[in-house]
Nucleic acid binder design. Structure first.
Lengths: 299, 299
DNA sequence: TAAGGTTACGGCGATCGTAACGATC
DNA sequence: GATCGTTACGATCGCCGTAACCTTA
């Protein structure tokens, strides 16, 4: 057993058990990986993969158990490298943030700017994805931390910490009937609604609220992206229900915003990362910066 | 980085950072391990060990963080091997049980005998040690499971499950004054006491009980081993306080046993093993056998 | 026949062993 | 001087690459 064989197994999973592609990714010829896999299976004494003819089709029961350990080894290997470069120079490095459009555009800019002043040599990559994908990104080590509102609480492999709480709000063109008088479930449901796609930015809280009230929204357009929603609101297609912090006081003056905290319960945005993953110092500081920014929102 | 270097680091810890002994354990010459260590430190970019001259004296802060990951890799590596041999043939293998004298002599014989009938090809090694050492044995992979009453609850790396509950009892030669009338804290403290050493077989429960009652035992002899205690009780040196199940109805007929459950709270014997450690199937069955035996004690 | 996998063999490099040297108690 | 670690150099064995072959969609 050696680390290259472990790495091979890891990559085989990522390439849908395609030996040729795995070989390519490892910068060696295909025959080499074929032999290494044989050697490893021989060492263990039984096959890790189901085969149809010569092609690998699936993991054997043994294979899937082994893969869990492979992941652990890979994680520890990455941690060693991260820890070491942390000691060498924790002022440079890279952060991959997996998050949704709303967070990237309306929450992250300020803490990121402050963080960059302190750590100018750290590269920051923002990976935009749906909340479900965010968690996959963490597991695939394509992201270090995820910032989002939905889903992250279920996964036992994740550490999550609360970042900030927020409410939804309705946006509409000036002069719209809903600009006046109290907003109720009944009034909202009588207009066409534009809001987030399922699984995005507190959409689940919206659903729950209206379901419990016994009413139902007429969602005629759902988008992952607040800006898309606003665009269609400006086209007079209906009422937008968006995260309150996504209303921009400068650029959205043509839209009227109305609080919905009495109708839709608060949403909580969390920071999540893999439990077993060693986060470099600068990444820990970045999280601290996020929490600081979150505090200032409350105040 | 490769698995041999990881293995080297692991063995260096076990050999008090002695390169020569590590080389011996790895069946290669000393110069080879010296170079491998250099290569690894070079790869990481900074030293893992403090050096005094040429000798390795301690881990650097980097080193100790890395060692934690090394342990994880080693664990995963062992798991892969265990899982694989489990699939090959789970009817043979080895169980290392770390436990104390009392459990080994008065609890384990029956479940072990029953287990051997089902799994005759499994070798069973009993490692006797103090409860503190038991936990070290688990961490050092010298034992698969530990069975004991004290200490194991503190360690977050351990899975523990309750095995059985029991009480202490007093043993004394026939005709001793304490054979008659009710046993009280006061009466017990007026005689010399023989019992377990600190940290053994519920000694902590004894201590707590008498401390809370405001009295103090006159322990004139403490041993790790019930048989030693009985021997001195037979020599009329005093009253023995032992685990109730350590009284043998056949061989201890010359001694009188008296229940102490009204004075000393129950002790709980637990089974413990490493959280990250994959236990072979037969080992899981062995634990099931232990729990079965524990149930029968209650009944 | 293209794509994916296996087998055979020769070459190269990583890692080991030998050996001589250096340091520390 | 005994123990422990380092350095230099030649030898070896593991692993890769080339290439020919096999199998299935």
């Amino acid at each position: 057993m050696n680390l290259n064989q472990i790495e091979l197994l890891r990559i085989l999973q990522e390439t849908q058990l395609n030996l040729s592609k795995a070989a390519e990714r490892m910068h060696i010829v295909q025959s080499a990986v074929s032999r290494q896999l044989q050697l490893f299976e021989e060492e263990l004494g039984s096959p890790l993969f189901e085969r149809k003819g010569k092609k690998l089709t699936a993991l054997t029961p043994l294979g899937s158990r082994v893969m869990a350990e492979v992941a652990a080894i890979n994680q520890a290997k990455l941690n060693i490298q991260t820890i070491a470069s942390d000691f060498l120079d924790s002022s440079k490095g890279t952060i991959h943030i997996a998050t949704t459009h709303t967070q990237a555009k309306y929450f992250l800019p300020e803490p990121i700017q402050r963080f960059r002043e302190k750590y100018p040599a750290i590269r920051i990559y923002i990976v935009q994805a749906s909340p479900e994908q965010l968690i996959d990104q963490l597991h695939a080590h394509k992201a270090d931390i995820a910032i989002c509102t939905e889903k992250v609480n279920d996964d036992v492999d994740l550490v999550t910490q609360q970042c900030y709480e927020w409410h939804h709000a309705a946006v509409m063109p000036k002069g719209h009937p809903l600009c006046e008088n109290e907003l109720t479930y009944a009034r909202l449901t009588s207009f066409p609604i534009l809001t987030y796609s399922f699984g995005f930015t507190g959409r689940s809280a919206i659903e729950r609220a209206f379901q419990q009230s016994g009413t139902q929204l007429d969602v005629i357009l759902a988008a992952a992206d607040t800006d898309v929603i606003k665009t269609y609101v400006r086209m007079n297609m209906g009422i937008g229900i968006i995260a309150r912090m996504a209303y921009d006081v400068h650029n959205d003056q043509d839209l009227v915003i109305r609080d919905l905290s009495h109708l839709i319960p608060k949403s909580i945005t969390k920071i999540a990362y893999l439990k077993q993953n060693y986060l470099p110092l600068y990444c820990q500081h970045f999280i601290a910066e996020l929490l600081l920014a979150a505090k200032q929102i409350k105040a």
